[in-house]
Amino acid sequence: MNCRLAICQTNPKLGVVADNLQSHHQWLDRCIAENVDLALFPELSLTGYILRDLTSDAALTLDSPQINELVARSKDVSFAFGFVEHSRDHRFYNSFIFAEDGVIKHVHRKVHLPDYGIFEEGRYFASGNNFTTFDSKHGRFGFLICEDAWHLSSGWLHFLQGADVLLIPAASPSRGIETDTNHLASQQSWHALCAAQAKFLQTWVVRCNRVGYEDGVLFDGESAINSPFGDVVASAHQSDEDFVIHQLTDSPLKRARVETPLRRDAQANLVRRQLAIIANDPDLSALLDND
C-alpha cells in the first residue's frame, strides 16, 4: 500500500446536518488541493454526538440526495465519514461510509454501543453485527467506531481478515483531570489502546477524534496515526480543528510482520474450536448470554 492519508479533525455542529455537509465539502476541497488519497472524518461527523431525541431527525438514508452528493466527491478523493443511518425498516445506526470512485464502497454500523457513564447510544441506535474488512484502491481497511476499538476482539477480527489499516473514528468525551501527564486520563487510555492494537495486530492505526464541546463535554482531539510498530508517527492538536497528512506505506507492515510473525501464528481455528466448546458448556456458556 502507498496512501497519502489525511485526518480531518473537525468540530461538528450538533444536529445541523446541512452545515456539517457544507463543512465536509470544504475539508474535501482542501484534501483535493493537497493531493490526498484518503481522508478520515470523526464519528458522527455529519451530525455531532449528543443527539438524544435528534437522532431520528438527523438521520439520512444511504440513497438520500445529501449522501449521494457527498459521495460523488469521492471521484476525486477517497474518504470516510460518520452519520446516523436511517435503514429501510426505520432503525437508526451509528454508521460510517467509505466512499471511493464516486460510490459507497463500504458501510460499517457501530457494533459496540456504550450505555454507561455519560453514554446512551444503546437507547437511540441499533447495533451493527459484523466487522468486515474491505479493499480499497489504497489498501485493505477495517473500521472500528470509537467503542468498537475498546473490545479487543473487534480489531482482532480485522487482523484475521488481513487489514493493513484500522480506521478508528471517535467522539471521545474527555475526562480525568487528576493526572500528572499532559493528557486527560481518557486520552491516555486511547494512547495505550491504539499503540497496543497497532503493535500487536501489526497494522497502521488511524484514529480521528473530534474536537469541540457539547453541553460542557469536551471532545479532545489528539487524533493520531500509529505505525505497525505501535509508535505515534503523526498527531493532531489537543483541542482545535486540525488537518494532518501522513503517508501510509507497505514497508513497515512487512518489516513488523517479518520481525514478529503474529499474523502467521494467530491460530484462529483454535479460537473457533474453543468458542464452540465454551458455547456448548452449560457453565461457561452463561458467560456468553448477553452476546
Binding site: 483531570i177 487528576e178 493526572t179 500528572d180 499532559n182 464541546y213 460542557g216 469536551l218 479532545d220 483541542s239
Partner: peptide
Amino acid sequence: PPTCNVELAERVLVGFLKSET
C-alpha cells in the same frame, strides 16, 4: 484530597467558557 493537573484544567475550562459563550 483529590489532585488536579492545573495546566489541563486551565485548557479545558477556558475552552469551555469560550465555546459555550
